[in-house]
Design a protein around this nucleic acid. Structure first.
Lengths: 346, 346
DNA sequence: CTGAAAGCGCTAACAC
DNA sequence: GTGTTAGCGCTTTCAG
């Protein structure tokens, strides 16, 4: 615990008999400092084991070199993977990453944004909480000149950069695939909260039905459930008990799909012969269970990289100030055993 | 993009006709400021929409209010869950959390620590990279007076606080369970890198064998593999091909165990009748696949909370300066179908 | 190309 | 209890 004063640019200046401002310039590679002095300064810096005091530099320039990230849950595979992408890209550009989670609660999200603003983050990347569609607090940050970019989820009516998935069109492709495989009646397992992502995933199925001249009203029943394994089990057991007619379970995420599979197998049904089951998001588990589950792969990592790159660009060139840009990343259909009657070579 | 100057304590002072230092004291709830002025100051602060400039305060106090976290991979379920725990506990204590990943590479880890030291983090929580057993860079941080605490993994020979799992004794319990179930010959799938965690997990099995008077040398064959699903598949296929004798696969993580299960099922073997398979870490998937896999549950979230709480305590009271404290968290055996011949009520 | 000097916003002695 | 004063370490005008 050696609490010795650390070396400053003044120490370097004194040692070299020059002025501290020259040292500052030299270390920042200012163009009009001679190469000779730059070299001297750098050498002395390493010799004295100089480390810049970022805090001081931050105060002076009122830049923190930090970007804030807010996600609902850090430990969700999708989000932690996005974060991994963010972290890589941010570090490459010389930024630190400050992380916090909203737990899908509006209050916590507001508090997080406040803390980040106080910490003078230079920008915020957020996938907003499902609770509440009101983006007041986000708008405020924007008004303070701090760019806030959305990824995966967003609020309508806030003009800013967004990086999203083309869930709707991939959901349509998924729907078409299911129809082709002979699916006729869909059981839709959707989330309890109203969110852009769930709406899109449902809309895609509707698109698919309409594109082949079928009717949503008679071919789809839906249940709002907690999108968990247990939620999926319960929902399917309910539907079976009630004798509802369906031959496809379309769950809005893989966990619920896994639950559906378990419930169906337990009831002695065959997948995909009797029932097809599909999910969304390509959780690692969906590939490993039996039968493996057809799903939609979203490149979370790419999403993190992309939205970070956009933010860094914006920070580099404040004036470019695009009002609102929406980037849609391609998700891809991953067809597996649970929906593929063709090749039953299991 | 309103780039107006934000209000400072001086503005508040001027508006109230008092001195800025009084404002500072009032806002920091200094004991010898009268309640009356405190109230006035606070009201004026909210009225003027004052937000403290953390950067300035940081410089002055040379505290950043930030703790750094370094993990091998953010997106690993175990680590993202630890991080979730860290985040919660840190925020509760008023700290921000700076995150970075080492990708199990020593170089990156060193760089991360440097960056964090430059950012003046007040403490670092790290699960060190598998690459390299040399903790030079960590020792340096400690020597600079920045506490570095280990979680999950650690380096020998560095005196500091650690929060670990009792992997060895749970592995012993796991071993005893397997012996009780009639296991006789173990195929050990271990990681390629030399790391405390893998050593402990293997040592536990040895303990179990010895505790019942059996012999490691004749009852255990082991393979160093990449601890992935593919690694597990390949390893088991190899062993089967070579005709090695074993009736238990003990994988050092769940992914490899899942691979082992897949390879055995594909070869037409029955689990657990012919072969038992066990893993480690309780990945979500291990419960969901068929057969469900016996594993060891490590409370990652608790680990994050615990190590953070220790760090916060240390930061609060610099002088307490415990040289080295090791906390062992209890992991628990989770017995599932893949190792349980008794109740084959599948 | 380099030096002098001011100050970012806040805190902490030290006075009174 | 409150005011005065002096910086924290760095950047950035403005001179020369």
């Amino acid at each position: 615990m050696t609490k010795q004063k650390s070396t400053t640019i003044h120490d370097i200046a004194d040692a070299l008999g020059i002025n501290s401002s020259t040292v500052s310039r030299a270390l920042n590679d200012h163009p009009k400092v001679s190469e000779k002095t730059k070299k001297k300064v750098r050498e002395m810096a390493t010799q004295l084991n100089y480390r810049p005091n970022v805090l001081a530099s931050n105060l002076r320039t009122s830049r923190s070199g930090t970007i804030g990230v807010i996600v609902p849950f850090i430990s969700r595979y999708f989000f932690s993977t996005v974060i991994a992408g963010i972290e890589e890209e941010a570090h490459k550009a010389g930024y630190n990453v400050l992380i916090s989670q909203s737990k899908d609660r509006l209050e916590l999200e507001k508090k997080n944004i406040k803390t980040m603003m106080d910490s003078r983050v230079e920008g915020i990347l957020i996938s907003p909480a499902l609770e509440g569609t009101d983006g007041q607090h986000i708008q405020e940050a924007l008004d303070h000149g701090v760019p806030v970019f959305f990824f995966d989820r967003y609020h309508e009516g806030i003009e800013t950069t967004k990086v999203l998935m083309n869930d709707r069109s991939t959901a349509k492709a998924l729907g078409q695939h299911l129809l082709q495989e002979g699916g006729t009646h869909f059981l839709l397992l959707t989330g309890q909260m109203d969110s852009s992502i769930y709406r899109d995933r449902a809309a895609g199925i509707k698109d698919a039905l309409e594109s082949t001249g079928r009717d949503w009203a008679t071919q789809v029943t839906s249940q709002k459930i907690p999108l968990t394994v247990e939620g999926g089990i319960e929902a399917v057991e309910n539907s079976l008990k009630k004798g509802e007619v369906f031959d496809v379970v379309y769950a809005m995420n893989d966990l619920a799909a896994i639950g559906a599979v378990q419930a169906l197998l337990k009831a002695g049904k065959k997948i995909p012969e009797d029932y097809m089951v599909v999910g969304f998001s390509n959780e690692p588990t969906s590939e490993l269970i039996h039968p493996s589950i057809t799903t939609v792969n979203q490149s979370a990592w790419t999403m993190g990289k992309t939205v970070t790159r956009k933010l860094v660009e914006q920070l580099k060139d404040k004036e470019l100030s695009v009002a609102s840009e929406t980037t849609i990343l391609k998700s891809e259909l991953v067809i597996r055993t649970s929906s593929s009657k063709r090749n039953l070579e299991r």
